[in-house]
Design a protein around this nucleic acid. Structure first.
Lengths: 203, 203
DNA sequence: CGGTAAGCACACAGGGCGGTGTACTTAAGT
DNA sequence: ACTTAAGTACACCGCCCTGTGTGCTTACCG
């Protein structure tokens, strides 16, 4: 519905079917969830015939898996490549999500599918572990005493904020960011302080 | 399947239909999720005729709402009433969940239903806020500087652990408990230390 | 004992879903 | 121009799901 750039011909949109399908999936799965989005509706939104959809994807399951795989982790990749930030700032930047973010689709998919064996569930697992690993890398760069632990902790905070935001319908990322700041300051030895305030920890 | 105490008559189980239905819902919704559990299957598991089920509940939605409402928050209520623990220990005890806990059903329900207006979603919201409030109470009792903030933070940790446990298929509560310990020690002024170690904060 | 509320068995309606079959049309490459 | 890959239109199948209609049986309680 947003900007599906309809082809110039008006009908018979041409060769971009697969991309249009994945684009529509992105939108509809986010807005309605996977289970509540039928293939008919999805194909209509993608302006693609159902037949074409099933020539690109063996079934809905495969489409769901590909949808997750193609999901643009804009928050993540955008954050870790920013060299203008100190490592500590980079760790904290992971919590600056635009308020228009509905919910981490990886969690939503894993819960909705309810099957750990599903390819999409496996990919969600891989992705979450990758995020923790990248956070651990940044933590190591920032001089954390136990980077793996800090990475795992920050990843848990992100997931907690995402879940809580969904259930309460209220942005929980600021709370998570506050916790993250405490953890980071506690984990990084005072010597490595790049931009830490002088005052020691909290009280 | 666990201990549905089947009636002595063998068939025609008698008047306990409503309880049996809710018991079966508890089990099946947890194990399979709500959307993947049909009313037929549920009635079979409850040893109740479908007709009876629909005389007790106007529809599946109402059953789901009642299921959440009747959910025994064994972890929660069991923890806050323990007077043998110091307030700090009580806060930490909320993270000692038995490893057989699949996932906080409130999060799962909110994600599965995908409709914030659904009665069950509203109840999930209420419940999550109640948990945060009780945690804040305990935090106040423990002498935290900002009990509301600490309560909200601990609640976020619990939700994060629950979500992450589900997605990764690995217990994330120890990590959350470790974070909680840091937060609690940072939030409670040193004077009120009931059982804190002497060494200052982490490093 | 008799009445009434609770429960049962079972078929069936109505709809949505995932997925397919068939015959047709268009665009692109050489 | 001809071929071929991509897409289309649309009817259709079988399945499962929520929810009902109907007539019957049992347990409790005064």
């Amino acid at each position: 519905m947003t900007e599906l750039e309809k082809g110039p011909t008006g009908r018979r949109r041409g060769r971009g079917a697969r991309e249009r399908i994945l684009g529509a999936a992105q939108e509809l799965f986010r807005e309605q969830g996977i289970n509540r989005t039928g293939m008919d509706q999805l194909c209509a939104a993608a302006e693609v015939s159902k037949r074409t959809a099933y020539q690109h994807f063996a079934g809905k399951d495969e489409l769901v898996a590909e949808y997750l795989r193609r999901f643009d982790p804009s928050v993540l990749s955008g954050v870790f490549d920013r060299t203008d930030l100190t490592p500590r700032e980079r760790l904290l930047a992971a919590f600056d999500v635009p308020p228009t973010t509905p919910l981490c689709p990886y969690i939503a998919t894993a819960v909705e599918l309810h099957d750990p064996q599903h390819p999409a569930s496996q990919y969600a697992r891989d992705y979450k572990q990758a995020v923790a690993a990248r956070l651990a890398d940044a933590a190591r760069e920032a001089g954390a005493a136990d980077p793996e632990q800090l990475g795992e902790q920050l990843a848990l905070l992100i997931d907690g904020a995402a879940a809580r935001t969904r259930v309460l319908n209220a942005d929980a990322f600021p709370t998570a960011a506050a916790i993250a700041a405490v953890l980071i300051d506690n984990a990084i030895p005072a010597t490595a302080g790049d931009d830490r305030r002088r005052e020691e920890v909290s009280s």
